[in-house]
Amino acid sequence: MKFYSFWRSLASFRVRIALHLKNAAHEVVLVDIDRDEQRSADYASVNPQMVLPALVLDDGTVLSQSLAILDYLDETFPEPPLLPADIKGRARVRALALMVACEGHPLLVPRVRHYLDDVLKLDQEAQAAWRKHWIVETLKTLEAQLAGAQGHRALLLWRCADDGRYLHGRPCFDCAHAEYRSGALPHHQAYLRDVDGTAGLRAGAPAGAARYAAGDAAEVTARPPG
């Protein structure tokens, strides 16, 4: 399989963790969203929506949208499962994942940031306020929903387990980190502590911005992730 990804792409991070959890061999192709490479003709021929990630199967089939890719991986590589065994647990985890993937995350992606900058002409302070508002709103919603949800580790949500930072740049990390320092998100913190030792999450996390931006050979070589 060929996995089109970037270290700072939250949607790619979800899929990368699942690939490592399931030890599914794949080749990583870096698409630098900071340089708008996702809008290149080459990548548009792979994914006409021009967003990350994309997973190209060995037969040439192209899968897009991170949660759809997760469903495919879970059905194709059933061990270890990403979802709880019981039907209510699966519904709950899907709902939590959708809160991030469909409610919070889409408001922070490059095409939205470009619109705020190029069309609405919002200054950096206003854009930072936009990001902070939607990140904090999403985290608060998750906090309320995570109460009593221990053991549902399949969320694979916001955190880069390598260094604790969020994947949309320093301003987003700062505003989220302020919420943690205030003690406003105890269930979210407990969840993160619970999944921190998960081998696939550790293996799937980027080792750092510089390494991924440079296209480290270990990340662009076909191999079974470990």
Rank of each mutant, 00 (worst) to 15 (best):
I33C: 13
K121E: 13
E79K: 07
S40A: 09
E75M: 03
A95W: 06
D118Y: 06
V100I: 11
L70W: 13
R113F: 06
S64T: 08
A41Y: 00
R90D: 05
D58R: 12
R92P: 02
R113G: 07
V109R: 02
D74I: 00
M50T: 15
R39D: 10
V56A: 13
Q65F: 02
S64E: 03
P53S: 14
V119A: 11
V109F: 05
A44G: 07
D71H: 07
G89K: 06
D74F: 03
V119W: 07
I69A: 08
D118P: 14
A85H: 04
V112H: 01
L70P: 01
L52E: 13
D34C: 06
L98E: 14
Y115V: 03
A91N: 04
P84L: 04
V29T: 15
G89Y: 02
S40E: 06
R39C: 15
L120K: 09
R111D: 09
D32T: 05
D59R: 10
L116S: 02
K88G: 11
P80W: 02
K88V: 07
S66C: 00
E75I: 00
G104H: 05
L116C: 05
Q65N: 09
P53N: 04
P84D: 11
V51L: 14
L83M: 12
S40W: 12
L116R: 01
R92E: 10
I87L: 08
V112E: 03
A54L: 02
R92W: 03
M99K: 05
I69S: 02
A91E: 13
D36V: 04
K121Y: 10
A44P: 01
V29I: 11
N47L: 00
L52W: 06
D34A: 09
L70A: 03
